[in-house]
Amino acid sequence: MNNENLNLALHIWRQESREAKGKFEEFIVTVSPDASILEMLDEINNRLEKEGKIPIAFESDCREGICGACGFVVNGRQHGPLPKTATCQLHMRNFKDGETIYLEPMRATPFPIIKDLIVDRSAFDKIQQSGAFISFNTGSAPDANAILVPKEAADASLDAAECIGCGACVAACINASAMLFVGAKVSQFALLPQGQLEKYERVQEMVAAMDEAGFGSCTNTYACEAECPKGISVINIAMMNRDFIVSKFRSKEVES
């Protein structure tokens, strides 16, 4: 844990507001290899505040990789170069002394920049509010073991449900598609017996909300899975597409 400090040249995206023009600002820093990348930014910000300058705006909360608040682009990669790692878990020992590092916000049309490295991901909440739930009032549940769930289904459902809503999948996608995010939520419920009744309505509503929010379509590059800090599988997109297509035929039958 007592390796030499690293000397780094950082180029960090600064943008005062959504409308303002942004640019990279250079910072030369010496940092402990044990620091996380966010702790490095904390130190820079402390220095900036001391000098009476405006600190770099970035979001973070749990710093354990689970809340999904943090996330920016490090040298062109969402959440940095390590697989299955959120930005807050990226430690500076993964960089070399003398390296130049570029930090910029996740860029996607549905995620407008708010300030510096902070983007507006509220479109994700709108998609969730459109139908990502089981319609069920508190108090009317049967005994928990009255609903048997095969272990394989519960495990697969949890694999999908681990999504932290960080937005990396969207920013990684050339089409700014939210198919992995939506697919993960659709699959979590579709895999469980509790989710069956509203399965087809749910997928239609969520896909419609996704389209309305301006997210693009999927062209199977799988960049989303590669950049996902939780390693959510693109199989969830395929499962969602299957349900979506079935739901279309099904609706027509009902209508005719």
């Binding site: 089981i134 073991n145 509790q194």
Partner: peptide
């Protein structure tokens, strides 16, 4: 006990045994 019932009904994917119970 009501909490567990509620959360299962909501679709929380709790760990399961092979027989499908919690």
């Amino acid at each position: 006990n009501n909490i567990i019932d509620q959360c299962v009904a909501q679709g929380v994917p709790f760990a399961r045994e092979y027989g499908g119970t919690l």
